[in-house]
């Protein structure tokens, strides 16, 4: 089980770096937003991994189980997911308006159009 726990954190690091890389290098605004999404998701997994108690069950009140996973990070991440969805929605809405104002969603092309 311990190895699996560490694998979790490697996935977090991999996703985090992938996300940041996409945000920084992509020219297409939609891709930037998707990169941002991947970056945020990695943090969600980080929190959920922290909450895992080895051998624990889901935090439901039953007489059979005695060890529970920590429910608080789950709740925190529910909130963070909502924030993430709102950010994505707003980002995409802005991109729709950028597309109608500049005729493109490419970062370089937008800068060219803006300069003219």
């Amino acid at each position: 089980m311990e190895g699996l726990g560490i694998v979790n954190y490697w996935i977090v690091v991999a996703l985090m770096m992938t996300g940041l890389y996409v945000v920084m290098t992509a020219n297409n605004f939609v891709k930037k937003i998707i990169g941002l999404n991947i970056f945020q998701s990695s943090v969600f997994i980080l929190y959920i991994s922290i909450a895992k108690v080895s051998g624990g069950t889901a935090p439901i009140l039953t007489s059979e189980a005695e060890i529970y996973s920590n429910p608080l990070p789950h709740v925190l991440i529910l909130t963070a997911i909502v924030v993430g969805v709102a950010t994505t929605a707003l980002g995409l809405a802005l991109i729709v308006r950028i597309r109608s104002a500049f005729g493109t969603v490419d970062d370089h092309e937008v800068q060219d159009v803006a300069r003219d």
Partner: peptide
């Protein structure tokens, strides 16, 4: 219209 790209850039930086 450049306010849109300014807002999006801020959104990306702010979210990071």
């Amino acid at each position: 219209r450049r306010c849109l790209t300014a807002a999006l850039r801020y959104l990306i930086m702010g979210t990071i």
